[in-house]
């Protein structure tokens, strides 16, 4: 090949490579989606440490609220789970890659394959206080505080989860289709129906996997809706 031709080809190759890197960089920037998680009592934002009415005769004070969402199916350990913490506003902005079909599909809790896959890191590090040390598995919803029903106050301690058999508490949240040009979406967790059920059952303390924990988790999941 003539030397000049080789130089031209070489320059063209470098230019194409440069162009590709620009395009892919833009695409990468667009590929991220942020899910802003909000926790509400009906229309009212939940505030940590504040007594808030959840019904005419029910008030609740939430001191701690942490929970997991993850991507199905099971991903690599620690790579596809998010620990959301009402006390840590940054954690409520869940950064994730844009879904291939623009459909956001989240699991409330941690997939069972990850739960039994050994020690996790990052969001799944046992140090995060969401691992049941006495048995295998992650607490998927940890809510602590107090509740007043007809003026009678009780501690509220709900450590909910379970992934095996009748205690399986994970559930898929409703799919949400986002616009290809949209980079963020709001996930609203309305816990009012959940608290109605807690009051109905008068079960304010749940500390281990059980059918009650499973039922509570399903009601929590049903209270989630996505918005633009």
């Amino acid at each position: 090949m003539h030397l000049d031709m080789r130089v031209v080809l070489s320059r063209s190759a470098w230019f194409l490579l440069f162009l590709w890197s620009l395009i892919s960089g833009v695409a990468e920037g667009q590929s991220a989606v942020v899910v802003h998680h909000q926790v509400k009592l009906g229309e009212v934002q939940v505030l940590l440490g504040e007594w808030q009415k959840s019904d005419s005769n029910v008030s609740v004070r939430i001191d701690k609220l942490r929970w997991y969402v993850s991507l199905p199916p099971a991903g690599k350990k620690g790579s596809k789970a998010w620990l959301l913490d009402l006390a840590d506003s940054a954690s409520l902005d869940q950064q994730m890659s844009r879904p291939v079909n623009n459909r956001i599909s989240l699991l409330f809790g941690i997939d069972s394959a990850i739960q039994v896959a050994g020690v996790g890191t990052g969001a799944l590090d046992p140090l995060r206080g969401m691992y049941w040390t006495w048995q295998t598995g992650y607490v998927q919803w940890k809510m602590e505080g107090a509740i007043r029903v007809d003026g009678l106050e009780s501690p509220l301690e709900l450590h909910l989860g379970g992934f095996d058999g009748a205690t399986k508490s994970q559930s898929m949240l409703s799919d949400y289709l986002i616009y290809p040009t949209t980079n963020s979406v709001i996930a609203q967790w309305n816990i009012s129906p959940f608290l109605v059920e807690v009051v109905r059952r008068k079960k304010f303390g749940v500390m281990s996997p059980s059918p009650i924990a499973r039922d509570y988790c399903r009601i929590i999941a049903n209270g989630v809706s996505f918005h633009k």
Binding site: Q115, V116, A117, G118, V119, P126, L127, G129, Y131, T133, W134, Q135, T136
Partner: peptide
């Protein structure tokens, strides 16, 4: 059979009140 993976087994005695009684932190 409470623990389903060896890597996580030691957490149980380390943190159990009647065994070693420590917090992970």
């Amino acid at each position: 059979g409470a623990i389903k993976h060896l890597d996580l087994q030691s957490l149980s005695p380390l943190t159990h009140r009647t065994e070693m009684n420590l917090s992970i932190d």
